[in-house]
Nucleic acid binder design. Structure first.
Lengths: 244, 244
DNA sequence: CCATGCTACATTGCATACATCTACAATGGC
DNA sequence: GCCATTGTAGATGTATGCAATGTAGCATGG
């Protein structure tokens, strides 16, 4: 018997996933999914990014199949997809686990984000139309007015991805989206509202058409956030609680 | 071996895949694969990159299962993995097809390669040890001595990925590898030995520790190759033969 | 003659069942 | 008492069969 449940269900390192909060998510994603594995994929992605499933969790196919009320086949494929997104990892015959982020990976991801997003900014700026700017402004205004931290973060993603999409480069935008998604988990630990001022400065530079200032702003901000996250990670590690 | 032709099998746009040349590949990959889907994945990847399966081909699960002498399940998962690598695409209930590269995508990929690989060069240079340099030199020498075009291309890949690996950044190296793989198909059309001089100049800059010169060399070379490929694509398109 | 709806087929998506592998623990030898 | 070995349980990997969906062809009506 391995059934770890009962009493000790604290978010521990090798825990099984509980269907508690997952069940809600499933119903929320259902209408948007064409096929079952899409549902599983979307739900698990959301659950991991939002921290409903903690890093280190073993994802057993049969458990998940039970939660989603389906068989293991769609689950397997969804897990495989998540593996390629970097949210889970697997070894043959040993199954899947949710990946953890250590300081080195935070460093690498933010470094990549600076490179990729700066590039996207430089490509997007000359292509920006007035209509684009108005749309960005709308999103930005909605974001600053929003009080719920989660909603705000979602709007921030929409703002930046919208901007980058103007480049009309699907691969570039896709890579950026993946990197942002990977660290989104970490961002929820704390400092969700780290420095609202930054985004304002960045947007001002964009509106002024000043690529140098925009990318400089972006880089310095990301370096700050990465440093914060690294320090947070170090603290967690010392406490032995080994967070994501 | 490379055996490209076969009189009758005109590589047509929506063709089914023939097990003819695939069979060889399968046996070649078998020893290295732990599980069946690894075998399918590795073989199909090799086949697509080497042009054994032409772009636009429909990849029917049952056909592939027959070729690999297995069931559709491992095939499905391998195809899903290839989709995330960008080599095939799929729509629900409609199946998988090998992706094609048009001029815009060539442009985007080479642009990304310049950004990512330049970044990698700048990160790697300060970390280069004498041992690293010796290893690179060995690969380089083997490469220049090699006469077979396919082997030469493989060694080139090894040389560059080796260099980039020194950065100790798995995501960065992975992205670069993916981008290189995507265009590897195109490179085999022609100009496999486009400009051997470039790699020599690049390596000299590396050995001199001159990051600016190395990245400049790299960028100018990639822009040239991208332009060549785009022109080639345009010609193919005019002929209606619509290559990759 | 062309457009439209229907029927039959081909192919994918999913479920169930079997085979294989890994991990763990009890047992025996040293 | 400690270590290697082997047996067993649990989980993953694969095979087969059924259901759902998309596509092609033909008949029918305008």
């Amino acid at each position: 018997m391995r059934t770890t449940e009962r009493g000790t269900t604290g978010p521990e390192r090798g825990q099984r996933v509980g269907g508690a909060q997952l069940a809600e998510l499933v119903e929320e994603m259902r209408p948007r999914s064409a096929t079952v594995q899409d549902l599983v994929l979307a739900t698990l992605r959301e659950a991991i990014v939002h921290g409903v499933i903690v890093p280190g969790s073993r994802l057993r196919q049969e458990d998940l199949a039970a939660i989603f009320n389906t068989s293991r086949i769609p689950v397997r494929e969804a897990l495989r997809a998540l593996e390629y997104e970097g949210l889970v990892e697997s070894e043959p015959h040993r199954g899947f686990t949710v990946t953890s982020l250590d300081a080195d990976q935070i460093e690498e991801i933010y470094d990549l984000r600076i490179v990729l997003e700066s590039h996207a900014v430089r490509l997007a700026l000359p292509l920006l139309t007035d209509v684009d700017l108005q749309e960005l402004q709308d999103i930005y205004d909605t974001m600053t007015a929003e009080t719920d931290a989660d909603q705000q973060l979602a709007l921030r993603e929409r703002f930046y991805l919208r901007l980058y999409s103007i480049t009309a480069r699907p691969r570039l935008v896709g890579l950026i989206a993946r990197m942002r998604q990977e660290v989104a988990r970490a961002l929820r630990w704390q400092l969700v509202q780290h420095s609202p001022a930054h985004h304002g400065d960045f947007f001002e530079a964009i509106k002024a058409g000043d690529a140098d200032r925009a990318t400089a702003e972006l880089a310095s901000h990301y370096r700050k956030v990465a440093a914060l996250l690294r320090r947070y990670l170090r603290e967690m590690k010392q406490r032995g609680s080994d967070g994501t």
